[in-house]
Amino acid sequence: MQVREPDPSAASLEPRLAATVLLVRDDPFQVLLVKRSAIGSFPSRRVFPGGVVEKQDLHEKWRSLCRGGDHLNDADIAFRIAGIRECWEEAGVLCTVDGELGGLSDARSDDLLSLVERCGAHLDLGHMADFAHWVTPPSAPKRWDTRFLLARAPRDHVLCCDGVETVAADWVEPKVALDRDADDMHGLLFSTRANLQLLAMSDCVDDALEAARNRPLIRVTPSATRKDGRFLVSIPAEAGYPVSEGWVAEAPRL
């Protein structure tokens, strides 16, 4: 897998590789949502932590700094590293197996690879599973090839937004997040809502991880049809979502 520098002229042709993490915990069963700042991608939206795959996520050193990933190829590892990195950068949550991790609040500016090496820690890929794979339609002005990953949250963590990309973060039950969506002036992105609906079919972290590992990973490319000033967004029924279409008030950004 290669990561290329973005070419604005080719944005509609070549989607950028990205990773998004559904970070979950039990008692009660909740998922982490962050609120984007008013500027940048998806302004003021509540989304799962995530972002583009960067060159550092492909570094060869990662294999010796990870556990539970022996069955994964380099591309799979890079997506997982990107997702873990984004959770760390946007919400201050770092999934590790071991290592002295004290004083991390002073290390947010460090790149993840240097931080993990210095602390003698290992990233836990065994607590992650592929959840979904979405690709923005070719007609969109910006495109992403996004791997949605499901991950068990570490027990001892303190949420801490970076204040730049994200301004708030909270744990919420999937069904509660969906109920709130109707009253939120910004609403949820269609992809966020759809994956919350899929996650809400599970009752705990173990069930969600088992369901994800047993579910075929089907590439989802949504389509949108405009009617009466709104957009009907559709996804293939075989993708396994409880709902395969929904209305949005503005041109969908997926």
Rank of each mutant, 00 (worst) to 15 (best):
P138I: 06
S139A: 14
S139T: 11
A140Q: 12
A140R: 09
P141H: 06
P141R: 12
K142H: 14
K142L: 13
W144T: 10
W144F: 14
D145M: 05
T146G: 06
R147G: 01
F148N: 03
F148V: 09
F148L: 15
L149P: 00
L149A: 02
L150P: 02
A151K: 00
A151I: 06
A151S: 15
R152Y: 00
A153T: 02
R155L: 11
H157C: 09
H157S: 12
C160F: 07
C160H: 14
C161T: 15
E165V: 06
T166P: 03
V167Y: 03
V167D: 05
V167T: 15
V167C: 08
D170I: 01
D170T: 09
D170V: 00
V172R: 10
P174V: 08
K175P: 03
D179T: 11
R180W: 12
R180I: 00
R180A: 08
A182E: 12
D183Q: 12
D183Y: 07
D183H: 12
D184S: 06
D184L: 01
D184F: 01
D184Y: 03
M185P: 12
H186K: 08
H186W: 11
G187N: 04
L188I: 04
L188R: 09
L189R: 14
S191V: 13
S191W: 02
T192R: 04
R193Q: 13
R193D: 04
R193G: 05
N195K: 04
L196E: 11
L196F: 13
Q197P: 02
Q197E: 15
M201K: 14
S202N: 14
D203E: 10
D203H: 08
C204K: 12
V205T: 15
D207I: 00
A208C: 10
L209K: 08
A212F: 04
R213W: 02
R213C: 05
N214E: 13
P216Q: 05
I218P: 01
T221C: 10
T221F: 03
T221I: 15
S223P: 01
A224G: 04
T225F: 13
R226F: 01
K227V: 11
D228V: 04
D228S: 07
G229D: 07
G229P: 07
R230M: 11
R230P: 01
F231V: 03
F231H: 15
F231K: 04
F231P: 00
S234W: 00
I235D: 04
I235Y: 03
P236R: 08
A237L: 13
E238G: 00
E238L: 06
A239D: 07
A239F: 05
G240N: 07
G240E: 13
P242A: 11
P242M: 10
V243E: 15
